[in-house]
Design a protein around this nucleic acid. Structure first.
Length: 435
RNA sequence: GGCCCCUUCGUCUAUCGGCUAGGACAUCUGGUUCUCAUCCAGGUAAGAGGAGUUCGACUCUCCUAGGGGCUGCCA
């Protein structure tokens, strides 16, 4: 146990950005590594966007990624009274003052400003960026209460951090400049100044912050696309941190054991969907047969019912190494679950519309009819004998397209076993009939 | 404009003054194979530029260039 307390403090908007969730991951890992507490604070002061649905999306994302939090969720709106009390305190001390201002949209009103020192330097040691300092004169006074009386981010954030007794603030790089302001508020209030760690941004190929224009920018999209939470977690973790050796695929326990905030990189990291896809494939290969089966059933739907354990074992052995994201699966195996499957015209052209193919298929139907034990090795032996050692291509390719409509997939004989004798014969005959 | 930060293969990165600069993804070649994928073997590919410190610099210092962040009654 330690006294370390960190928080993830998103403002719920109905979507959780990958850069944001990476901050959550680093906070979580830091807390779990040090034996501290990981707190969740919902900065729900934007009443229009912070709907119950948006907050639920946030919870769902965290649960999906296995980011469990300690203590009760802290809602920023419930602490508004405190924020305003502190502002009064600041005013009494002469550190805050009211002024009439005109906002960008032309409205004039009285806002409360925080008074920054006018000389000296403000400095702090950022755990990831190192020593940072700035002339106080370079930081302007800033608003902390709007003309409608509502507290602004800067004051709400600091007061909540004080109330939640946060010891380490790990957040996005875009808050570095705010830190110089926040430190002054902590000082003015006589509160201990937390340690800071600012995380670089996730950027696109142009080096700009990764946004929805660059592809899937939100956690929910990866979930919908069939990525495993473990893979996204692992990939995001590696975007700016590594254990110091060549390991890349890490178990949750290893991550917790090895994670060190001091080793987080300062530089922005470019998001590479290809590597994420590779990593997802690695995780799919790692999951248990049982889990793979239930995920497959989830994706394929009702058509997956009624298959035997034995059937699944063969299916899993064939499909696990061929699956990059779970969502690829329904399309790549649908011919196993029904007769309504797409036929690739290029495959037909290349493998079926050739002289002699019709005869080959009809001949195979006759030979297959006599097969009593409908098993991949038996079928393979049969075709091997036909080919007389000259390669099974002339048989294998037409069969594959005839029964599946595509040129790629599981091993042909395994495919036939999965399909069953009746379906295989039916499809071969039907296909031959159309040639 | 001002302030702050960053800079190793295309990408993520290792290197804490000794480097023939290592790994992974991507890419290419070959092998295995009935296709695809897996798997195996191998290849191409990097220290932004310039000064300085040092026996020695990717590692330390400075300058330049390039990139990014902030500069709201957003968070």
């Amino acid at each position: 146990m330690s006294d370390i307390r960190v928080r993830f403090a998103p403002s719920p908007t109905g979507k959780v950005h990958i850069g944001n969730i990476r901050a959550a991951i680093y906070n979580w890992l830091f807390a779990r590594h040090t034996g501290g507490k990981f707190l969740l604070r919902v900065e729900d002061t934007d009443l229009e966007r912070s709907t119950p649905e948006a907050i639920q999306v946030l919870f769902d994302c965290m649960q999906w990624l296995g980011l469990d939090y300690d203590e009760e969720v802290f809602y920023q709106t419930k602490n508004v009274k405190r924020h305003l009390e502190v502002v009064e305190q600041l005013k009494a001390m002469g550190r805050a003052y009211e002024v009439e201002k005109t906002s960008r949209d032309g409205k004039t009103g009285v806002v409360t400003m925080f008074r920054m020192p006018k000389e000296g330097t403000i400095e702090f040691d950022d755990i990831v960026k190192g020593h940072l300092s700035k002339q106080a004169a370079d930081v302007q006074d800033f608003a902390i209460v709007r003309s409608d009386g509502s507290p602004i981010f800067h004051i709400a954030n600091v007061v909540d951090d004080i109330d939640q007794r946060v010891t380490h603030i790990i957040r996005g790089d875009d808050h570095v400049e705010n830190t110089f302001k926040h430190i002054e508020i902590f000082k003015a209030l006589g509160a201990p100044i937390p340690k800071y760690g600012h995380l670089s941004m996730i950027v696109n190929q142009q080096g700009k912050p990764y946004s929805k224009r660059d592809g899937a920018a939100f956690v929910g999209e990866y979930r919908e696309q069939g990525y495993l939470p473990e893979a996204l977690f692992n990939y995001l973790l590696l975007l700016g941190w590594n254990p110091g050796d060549d390991r890349e695929i890490l178990s949750r326990d290893e991550m917790i054991r090895l994670f060190e905030l001091e080793k987080v990189h300062v530089t922005a990291a470019m998001f590479d969907p290809k590597k994420l896809a590779w990593m997802n494939g690695e995780y799919i290969k790692q999951i248990s047969d049982r889990d793979f089966r239930s995920l497959a059933i989830e994706k394929v739907g009702a058509a997956a019912e009624g298959k035997s354990d034995e059937w699944w074992e063969l299916f899993i052995g064939q499909m696990k190494p061929r699956t990059k994201t779970l969502n690829d699966m329904p399309a790549s195996v649908c011919y196993l679950f029904g007769d309504d499957y797409p036929v690739d015209p290029k495959a037909v052209e290349k493998r079926l519309n050739k002289p002699g193919v019709k005869e080959t298929l009809l001949d195979l139907v006759e030979r297959f009819k006599g097969v009593e034990e409908w098993r991949a090795p038996v079928l393979e032996a049969l075709v091997k004998e036909l080919s007389q050692g000259n390669g099974m291509g002339p048989w294998v390719h037409p069969i594959r397209v005839a029964v599946s409509g595509r040129m790629e997939g599981p091993g042909l004989f395994e495919m036939l076993e999965l399909l069953g004798k009746a379906k295989t014969l039916e499809r071969l005959e039907n296909t031959a009939g159309r040639l």
